[in-house]
Every structure is written in C-alpha cells, then in structure tokens.
C-alpha cells in the first residue's frame, strides 16, 4: 500500500502524472464530481490548521466523497492518553484514506506502519509537508511551464520551514535547478539538507539579504517565521521581522518572477505586493485544492490496483 509521507516517496513521473491530473481537474471539475462517491477521507489534525484541513475536505467533497475527523488533539482520544498508533488503527477502520497533521516529526511515518489505509502527511512538525510541495510544484509548473532550469530563491525560516525542506527535496530532482537560500544564520536549512545538496552536486548559495540576489531569481518562495516552532519566545521576537517583501525590493526582480508563499502570511509580504502579477500565492491556494483531489484519487486508484 502506498502512502505519501515524504515527497520523494513518489517518483518524478508519478508526481508529473498527479500534476497532469490536477490540471485536468481544474479544466473540467464537473467530470470528477462523482469520482469518489462512497469513499471516506479522515482528516486527523493533532495541530491546528485552517487552510490545509479545509483544502483536504474541499478536495474530497469535490470528488463526491465524504469527510470525518477532528481539528485538534484536544477533541480526540489523544486527550485521554491514547497512543497515536492506536488512534490510527481505529480511524483506519472507519475510513478509506487518512490525511494527518501532527506536531511531532515522523508521526505520519509512524502512523503508516499500523494503518490499514493510505496515509497522507499533511505536515509533521518542522519536518515535511509534501502536499504543500505538490501545490508548489503545480503552481510553478503552471506559471513557468516547466520544473527545471531555473533559479529558486527560498527566503525566511529555512530551519523549521517544512515546506522549504520538502520543496528543496522535490526540485532537486529536476535538471538545471539552482537554489539561493536566504535566511539569518539562526534559521539556515538543517545540515542534512545541506549535505544532500552537496552530495548530489546541486548548486546552492546561502545569503542573508534578498536584495543581493533578487535580479537572478525565477521563483521566490517566501516563508513565515513560525512562532510555534520556537522553544524560546525571545528568539522568535528577534527573528520574526527579518525579511519583508515589498514593491521597492521587487524593483530589480525579473518581470516573469513568480512569488510563492505557503500561507498564512503575517507580515513577510506587504499587502502592496498582492496585486503585482508576479504574486501567485493565492493561485497556490486554489491549486492546493485540485492537486489534493488528484492525490487522493491517485492513492485510492493505486490501492484498488494493488
């Protein structure tokens, strides 16, 4: 049985097929409105989320399926002390597929060891967020028409930013991608990602200001400094406003730059950028629903074929 725990669980070809299906669903959503009639998605959110949970639920409902689940650990048996493994075993008896978010890193992988149905990682701590990555890949491909041969800037919290980790892992597999990692020294990417890039001989640079690299970028991926990832609030306050993208900083950018953000945004992108045609972060939100539709359908199709 296939799960999606880490974006690299899927081959490049499998990802392309999911993105193709997502594009078809955008073009003709009515053709898929009964595709999963009678199927149930469980959304197990042990950590609060609005966008991702609603996106999964919207995706399943758009395919004619049903949804059950909880939106915080307080409203599940976890509050009574039930282990994650027991919760997963139980819920996998009630559903056909599970999307789970958990504050602990590796929780979806642990869940997949005991689940009777496919598990989708909807975010595990500061570790991975592969469905956001599918959303990002779909958005980049729809903007650029390709996923290789480009300079990708990642800006903000690259240490705890799970969307960044997953996106680097995914885009590392395409030819001609160069990364520019823009962060304060305290929020650089973890050593294991650095090592992977070096091992695969993928060009990357670490810099501390976005201004110095802006003219080179084809994609600028902005991230929020996440309060919930810090043990020490003083560190959060010191770092939270390090990078703010505004129209002045964009003056030197390419005309076909694509600005992405996994959202929610706090103040790292000025609202004055929202109407710039290069800002595609709200397109990302829409794409997220369709690519999750494609993912859910693909995982269930694979399971039926197995």
């Amino acid at each position: 049985m296939r799960h999606l725990i880490d974006i690299t669980d899927f081959t490049v070809e499998e990802i392309e097929a999911i993105l193709d299906l997502g594009d078809e669903m955008i073009a003709d959503p009515a053709a898929y409105k009964e595709a999963l009639r009678g199927k149930i998605l469980a959304t197990l959110f042990f950590e609060p989320s609005t966008r991702t949970r609603l996106s999964f639920e919207s995706a399943m409902l758009s395919l004619g399926g049903s949804v059950l689940g909880f939106s915080s650990a307080d409203s599940s048996s976890t509050a009574k002390g039930e282990s994650l493994m027991d919760t997963i075993r139980t819920v996998s008896c009630y559903s056909d597929i599970i999307a789970m978010r958990h504050p602990k890193e590796g929780a979806p992988m642990a869940g997949s060891l005991k689940s009777y149905v496919p598990i989708i990682n909807a975010g595990d701590g500061g570790h991975n967020h592969p469905t956001q990555t599918l959303t990002d890949l779909m958005t980049i491909r729809r903007c650029k028409g390709r996923l290789g041969n480009m300079v990708v800037g990642m800006c903000g919290d690259l240490k705890f930013g799970r969307t960044v980790h997953s996106l680097i892992g995914a885009m590392s597999r395409y030819e001609g991608v160069e990364f520019v990692l823009i962060s304060p020294p305290e929020l650089k990417v973890p050593a294991y990602i650095n090592d992977e890039l070096k091992k695969k001989a993928i060009p990357f640079r670490e810099v501390e200001t976005m201004e110095e690299v802006m003219p080179e970028l084809d994609v600028l991926y902005m991230t929020r400094v996440q309060k919930e990832r810090f043990f020490n609030e003083a560190d959060y306050i010191r770092l939270k406003d390090t990078y703010i993208l505004d129209p002045e900083k964009l003056r030197t950018a390419k005309t076909d730059l694509s600005i992405l953000h996994p959202l929610p945004r706090v103040n790292e992108i000025s609202t004055r950028v929202d109407d710039d045609p290069r800002a595609v972060y709200f397109d990302q939100v829409r794409n997220g629903r369709f690519v999750r539709m494609a993912l859910i359908k693909t995982l269930l199709d694979w399971r039926n074929e197995a």
């Binding site: 282990s83 994650l84 493994m85 958990h102 504050p103 602990k104 890193e105 590796g106 929780a107 992988m109 642990a110 595990d124 701590g125 500061g126 570790h127």
Partner: peptide, 13 residues
C-alpha cells in the same frame, strides 16, 4: 535526540 521526534512520545515505536 530530537525532542520533536515522534519516538520521544510513542513508547511502542
């Protein structure tokens, strides 16, 4: 040793 790892709270793993 990662305090955020699921193994720190799921003893059966």
């Amino acid at each position: 040793k990662n305090p955020r790892c699921i193994t720190t709270v799921e003893g059966a793993l």
